[in-house]
Structure formats: C-alpha cells, structure tokens
Simulated assay, not measured.
Amino acid sequence: MSDVSTASILPGRSGAFGRLSDVFWRRPALLLAVMLIPPLLWLGIIYVGSLIALLLQSFFSIDDFSGLINYELTLSTYRQLLVPTNFDIIVRTIVMAAAVTLASAVLAFPIAYYAARYATGRWKAFFYLGVMLPLWSSYLVKVYAWKLILAKEGILTWAFDRLGLSWLLDGILALPVIGGNSLSISYIGTFLVFVYVWLPFMILPIQAALERVPGNLIEASSDLGAHPGQTFRNVLLPLAMPGIVAGSIFTFSLTLGDYIIPQIVGSSRLFIGQAVYAQQGTAGNVPLAAAFSVVPIAIMGVYLWAAKRMGAFDAL
C-alpha cells in the first residue's frame, strides 16, 4: 500500500509527537534503528571498547628502572605469566574453578531432577523460592557470614565439637595444600563458599533441561529392561548435558574472575582476580594486570565455543 493511500485511510496527526509517530509507523526499519543504536553504542564503546583497550595494554610492558609503562608492543608481559609464581596463580584458579563446577553439578542434579520430575504446584514454587532466595541477599553479606561460620570460633567448629568429631575436622585441616589453621583460612573454606554462592546458577539450567526430557523416554527405558543406572547414563544424562554445560558456563566463569571470596575466605595465595587487583591497584603494573585478565577471557572463549557445539545455549 502506498503512502498516499495510507494517508487517505489514516490522516496524519498534528503536533511534533504525532508527526514523529507517523514517521515511525510508516518506516518500521527507522524505529528499529532508533531503538537499537543506543544499546549497540553502549555495548560497542563501553564493553567491547574496554576489552580492546585491555587487550592492547597487555602488549605493553613496565620499565624495571622507572616503573613507567613502555608503550612499545611486546610479548614480554605474557612471558611473565609463565614465571612459576604467576603460572601457579593461573593453575590454582583453573583447578578451583573446575572443582567448584564439578561439585556444583553433582549437588545440583538431584535437586533439579526432583524439581523437574516430581515437584508441582506449591512445591515447585517453594523450589524456586529456595533456589532464588540466596540471590536476593547481598553478595558481601553472604561471604562475611560464611567467614564467621567457618572460623575457628564459628558454629561449624562448635557443631563438630558437640558431635565428638573434632578429630575429623582437625584431620581435614591437616591435609597438605588445601588445609589450614581453620576452615576460614583454607582452600576448603574457599571451595565451600564458592559452591554455595554459585550453586543456584547451576541448578536452574539443569532443571530447565530436565523439564524438556519426555517422561515416556524414561518409562520406555525401564520397560526395555534397563536398570536405573543404565537409564541415567544412556538416557537422562545425555539429554541433560546441555543444561549441565550451560550451568558450568556460569560457575566456571564466575569462579575464574572472582577476587572477593578468596580475599575474605581463604589463604594468602592469590587467584587471578586478586592478582589483577594487586597488579593494577598496588603494584601499578597495568600491563601485567591486563595480561592476567586476558587469561580467563581466552579460557572462556574456548569454553563457550565448545559449549555452543554441545547445544548448551538452548538451556540458558
């Protein structure tokens, strides 16, 4: 329909806003452009632009004598990541992120399975409330609360003592590398807090994936003589894998970049987030901080590519 015939059916409105509305109605592509340009500019300048600036900073170096940034392109800063002290930080962070992701998946699966297959009505609402409720409280409040819970004078130590299991707690804290004087200053405590904080981000994608699994597939597996273990391995787990991978995107990436939890709960050994904060804020070595920041970006880039191949984004 031409603009002339359209105008004869719907005459133009008076006033600036009326005329502007008519223009947008006749040219929907213009309206789409007006709506998309601001968020795209924000994404392109603030987010992508800052990442590009960060990447460029990582190719600079620090003058050892003056402490000033040398703006000549070099790979020497990336070579510093291979120094044993810095490389240990990277390995420590990746191992912790992998352990948190694996533990979260193991804990989340039965909870998500119950919510997807059995919970209905009020129980389903109770499930969502229970999963989402921890997310409504302050992140820092939760972390400091866990520091008090895990402290030597905390309720967890008191519970072990009342149950006569102090020897067990002492044995756990005596473990090399992961132990410490108390749970609040050990890798075990850091691990527990990470799992607690990020667990909801694993439960919800798995629950969404399990709800897509037709119940007749599980019944058919049982009718064909498969025992529960076989049904889990050959039917349920493969179909739920996109949800598990989707949840792992959250838990793995959030653990890789977090610096607050290891700063409050844990030992003095640094993680990548703490190293970035220390190099940028305390040492003033911005290129090395940028190089550390590129590590989780590169890891998550490869991880997201693999997750997309597995169809994980369908469960987000």
Results as ranks from 00 to 15, higher is better:
290 A>E: 07
183 L>H: 07
283 A>Q: 13
166 S>W: 01
24 F>H: 02
26 R>V: 05
209 A>D: 09
280 Q>M: 11
112 A>S: 06
112 A>L: 02
269 R>K: 13
120 T>W: 00
209 A>S: 14
149 I>F: 15
230 Q>E: 06
153 E>H: 10
149 I>W: 13
121 G>Y: 06
294 V>L: 07
274 Q>C: 07
61 S>C: 03
146 W>S: 04
46 I>V: 11
10 L>V: 11
79 R>Q: 15
270 L>I: 07
200 P>Q: 02
254 L>F: 13
1 M>G: 10
224 L>R: 01
282 T>E: 14
194 F>R: 05
42 W>R: 03
229 G>F: 15
294 V>K: 03
101 T>Y: 06
162 R>A: 14
241 M>I: 06
285 N>R: 12
12 G>T: 08
42 W>V: 13
104 S>G: 15
260 I>M: 12
275 A>M: 15
45 I>P: 01
35 M>S: 08
297 I>R: 03
107 L>R: 08
256 L>E: 11
224 L>D: 07
202 M>T: 10
280 Q>W: 06
111 I>K: 02
209 A>H: 01
69 I>D: 01
18 G>T: 14
46 I>G: 02
145 A>H: 02
72 E>P: 00
219 E>V: 05
98 A>S: 10
1 M>R: 09
41 L>T: 10
140 L>W: 04
49 G>A: 06
35 M>K: 09
48 V>M: 09
80 Q>L: 15
264 I>F: 08
259 Y>M: 06
47 Y>P: 00
31 L>R: 15
119 A>M: 07
148 L>S: 08
105 A>K: 01
115 A>P: 10
95 V>R: 11
265 V>H: 02
106 V>W: 07
212 R>V: 01
96 M>Q: 03
5 S>V: 13
270 L>P: 04
240 A>N: 06
160 F>Y: 15
177 V>A: 13
290 A>D: 09
118 Y>Q: 08
218 I>P: 04
236 L>Y: 05
68 L>R: 12
111 I>H: 02
267 S>L: 09
151 A>P: 02
151 A>R: 13
270 L>V: 06
316 L>Q: 10
95 V>P: 00
202 M>Y: 08
46 I>R: 08
242 P>A: 06
107 L>I: 14
57 Q>E: 14
60 F>L: 00
274 Q>G: 11
201 F>M: 00
237 L>W: 11
185 I>V: 15
164 G>V: 06
285 N>Y: 14
298 A>T: 09
33 A>T: 12
96 M>N: 01
84 P>Q: 15
155 I>A: 14
267 S>H: 03
206 I>W: 02
91 V>W: 11
229 G>C: 05
222 S>H: 11
289 A>G: 15
219 E>S: 10
247 G>M: 04
147 K>Q: 09
104 S>F: 05
264 I>M: 07
291 A>W: 10
17 F>M: 12
226 A>Y: 09
28 P>T: 04
132 M>G: 14
33 A>P: 00
166 S>F: 00
11 P>Q: 12
33 A>K: 04
103 A>R: 03
299 I>H: 08
